[in-house]
Design a protein around this nucleic acid. Structure first.
Length: 210
DNA sequence: GACCAGGCACATC
DNA sequence: GATGTGCATGGT
């Protein structure tokens, strides 16, 4: 009997408790973090965000004003700092030009259209776009990441190398389209991944939700 | 010192 | 369409 998505969620929630994601004081901080955390540990991203906060730059217009070189220096701890400085600026330009830097007007956009627009920004791929939609703008979009893939492959819920869209569809077609549910579910998968999967490669014999 | 982390774009076949 | 590679810091 295959583990159902709702059952898996209940077990994760009972075992780990609510995660209350995304860590961040504002929607804009979440957006910046979503780009900075690409293939990077969150601890390093926190250092980069702390640098931006210390310099009072965590606002769209202010962050876009500073030279790319300086931005790269500030986000250095997050790694890939040159490419991420470009990517952040690509996103900021989009935010400022299309929504005047106003997150509320961005949030008012039609979700599928906004997702397409985000994906058209160079440096924003499916996971970053969906993280922004779910965690910054409270849109019911499921975020698929490396942990999700790893866990679902190990539990034989997806095939190896399954496409992003395929995995996202699995969640969105089998779960209630609920922001809180999608938020907690993804956060719980990351928690499981960090606490167990990474420490017991390649197979986890002590998985708490098996 | 190796290995990895809450990806993505781009080149090449 | 699939596969390989560059991007980079900081923790284990």
């Amino acid at each position: 009997m295959k583990l159902g998505l709702n059952t898996l969620y209940r077990r994760l929630f009972v075992y780990f408790g609510p995660q209350h994601w995304w860590p961040g004081d504002s929607a804009f901080e979440v957006m910046v973090g979503a780009i900075l955390t690409q293939n990077t540990s969150w601890a390093n991203v926190e250092k980069a965000i702390a640098n931006l906060k210390r310099n009072r730059l965590l606002e769209p217009a202010k962050l876009y004003q500073i030279p790319q070189k300086r931005l790269a220096g500030l986000i250095r701890p997050a790694g890939y700092y040159n490419i991420k400085a470009k990517r952040l600026r690509n996103f900021l330009r989009f935010l400022l030009e299309d929504y005047k830097g106003n997150l509320s007007s961005m949030s008012a956009a039609d979700t599928p259209a906004l997702r397409q627009a985000l994906l058209a920004v160079n440096g924003i791929g499916p996971e970053t776009a969906d993280s922004i939609l779910l965690y910054a703008l409270d849109k019911p979009v499921f975020v698929v990441d490396a942990y999700t893939r790893r866990i679902f492959f190990r539990h034989r819920l997806i095939k190896e190398g399954a496409a992003y869209q395929e995995i996202q569809d699995l969640f969105m077609k089998n779960l209630k389209k609920d922001v809180e549910l999608f938020n907690e579910y993804h956060a719980l998968l990351v928690k499981l991944g960090k606490d167990f999967c990474l420490k017991t490669k390649p197979r986890c014999e002590i998985c708490p939700i098996k």
